[in-house]
Amino acid sequence: MPRYARAEREALADLLLALGPDAPTINEGWVTRDLAAHLLVRERRPDAASGLLLPPLRGYAERVRLRLAARPYAELVAQVRRPPVWSPVSNPLADELVNTMEFFIHHEDVRRAGPGWRPRELPPGLQAALWKRVGPLARLTLRRFPADLYVQAPGHGEISVGRGGEPLRVVGAPAELALFLSGRQRVARVQLDGPAAAARQLRNANLGM
């Protein structure tokens, strides 16, 4: 069975080491050190990880992240590369399901912040795995968008979501749709077909979690 989560984790760790602690990411205000610390909060600090989703706890999660970010950078990356087996999100039973899209997206957060980047040629199996996660993500992030949205990955399928209105189609490879729907619209290679105003609103919407 392919282990796409492990492959993306290893590739991200290699890139983090190659670029060093102060390289840019596409996450506003974050450099590579910040991104590495975020991943450690998610995997190693269950007391703070809920703050990644729950606004009342975000202050605590950020304080924990900043303390982690102050550690030696090589240590941070080593811990990203080798997650604890006890972690709810990275144990062997959960890893592929929970981390395939997570680590693909964060790998691209670093890759696409540099000059001259191009989309990677991804294995068909990875694109298929990402497509399985695009549907739930689309329903979560676009359910209130004021249009009939059709999220389409040629060769994989189509999902309809939104609150109704003029139709707007979002077309791209599963990997690009995953980036778009997680709030990385400015670097995602997707095509929007429909009313210009709705397309502009979607490109500038605060998507992701």
Rank of each mutant, 00 (worst) to 15 (best):
T32R: 02
A49V: 03
A74I: 04
W131Y: 13
L66R: 15
N206M: 11
R144T: 12
L142C: 10
R58D: 02
W86V: 11
P146A: 09
E166T: 04
G208D: 09
A205P: 04
N206D: 12
G20F: 09
T32A: 02
D109Q: 07
E8P: 01
A147W: 00
G125V: 08
Y150L: 13
L12F: 09
R45F: 13
P115D: 15
G155T: 07
A37C: 06
E102Q: 12
P88D: 10
L181C: 06
V161W: 09
R184G: 03
A198Q: 13
N204R: 15
R42T: 05
R186C: 01
H106M: 04
P88A: 11
F145Q: 05
H38P: 10
N27I: 14
R9T: 05
M101V: 08
P24L: 05
D47L: 13
W117R: 09
D22Y: 06
L149D: 03
T32F: 04
L93R: 13
R200G: 06
P124E: 07
E176L: 09
R139G: 11
R3K: 13
F104T: 01
T141Q: 15
R3W: 05
L66Q: 15
R186V: 07
A129R: 14
L142I: 11
G116M: 12
V85A: 15
P115V: 11
L122Y: 12
V85Y: 01
L207G: 07
L12D: 05
A11K: 13
R65P: 00
A37Y: 03
V171F: 03
G59N: 06
G162W: 01
R33E: 06
A69D: 01
Y73W: 08
P195E: 09
P136N: 11
G164P: 07
E108T: 10
R58A: 14
P2H: 14
P154E: 07
M209A: 13
G157L: 13
G155F: 07
H107P: 02
A78N: 06
W117I: 08
G125C: 08
M1C: 10
A175C: 02
A37S: 06
F180D: 00
L52Y: 06
G162P: 00
R33I: 04
L137Y: 02
E158A: 12
L40I: 12
L68I: 15
R120A: 15
E108P: 08
L142Y: 06
N204T: 14
P115S: 14
L12E: 05
R111V: 15
R163N: 01
D193T: 12
D148L: 12
L137V: 14
G172E: 01
W131F: 15
H106I: 02
S87Q: 06
